[in-house]
Design a protein around this nucleic acid. Structure first.
Lengths: 124, 124
DNA sequence: ATATTATTGCGACAAAGGTGCAATAATTTA
DNA sequence: TAAATTATTGCACCTTTGTCGCAATAATAT
């Protein structure tokens, strides 16, 4: 399944990279000048996830948010970091804070989804 | 708004306390012998949350799970603990592991929702 | 026993995501 | 460059989760 370049895909990626935040599908379309079908956006985002271009966060509102996997401020943002949802500006960002934990005997951790909720630096 | 005792409420609470796991609405009804309306279950669960009897977890599947606020194994399970979703037995449990973190300057954390995903001790 | 009002059931609704299928268009091949 | 291949899209439709209004029911207080 070789990938192809399309305008919609580039638009989605462009929005995500410029905003530097985790965004929901509807937030992404709002920022796009090109308009595309909802289902298409979801398919593009899920493809990006498979390819490791973006990662998915499920916030405490139950919605999926997508963020580009980039290094911010020279701190590598890998899988195991906290996400921060600001209740004032309604954005979700990747914190450089790594999630540290230890689980009881015999538990195997494969993924994680950690969201802190509060007021971000710009709103406090 | 004084609370009243009803059979449905007791049934919900009974299921949650006996299972000792975080359960979704549909999982709860399946375990109940009394049958009640979906909306009613949700209202009961949200009331329990308000009263501090149960707490709500939003898993990485975007669904709400509810767990009784109890002490397990002599370890107090308060707000700031990890949750563990087992992909094999499809349950979510409260880990005794507390969430430890430090956020960058000027961030104010008010809540958190941290879910680890993998294989639990019973399934590994 | 009656009045008060919390709780329930029903119906309807909205939002978020996903899917199948035919049409479109980006690559590849000739 | 033109034709063939097949990844991607748009559309329609569907499912699940969760909420809400309102009238009916039933738990408590009087």
């Amino acid at each position: 399944m070789k990938r192809r370049n399309t305008a919609t895909q580039e638009a989605v990626l462009s929005v995500l990279t410029s905003k530097r935040r985790a965004m929901s599908q509807d937030a992404i379309v709002k920022q796009m000048e090109v308009n595309a079908d909802r289902a298409t956006i979801y398919r593009i985002l899920n493809r990006f996830c498979e390819d490791g271009i973006v990662h998915k966060i499920v916030a405490d509102d139950g919605k999926q948010y997508f963020a580009v996997c980039v290094k911010c401020d020279d701190i590598p943002v890998l899988g195991n970091h906290f996400h921060f949802r600001c209740t004032k500006c309604e954005t979700i960002e990747c914190l450089p804070t790594l999630v540290e934990f230890s689980v009881p005997e015999k538990y195997v951790v494969q993924q994680m989804n950690c969201v802190l909720v509060g007021i971000c630096k710009d709103c406090s």
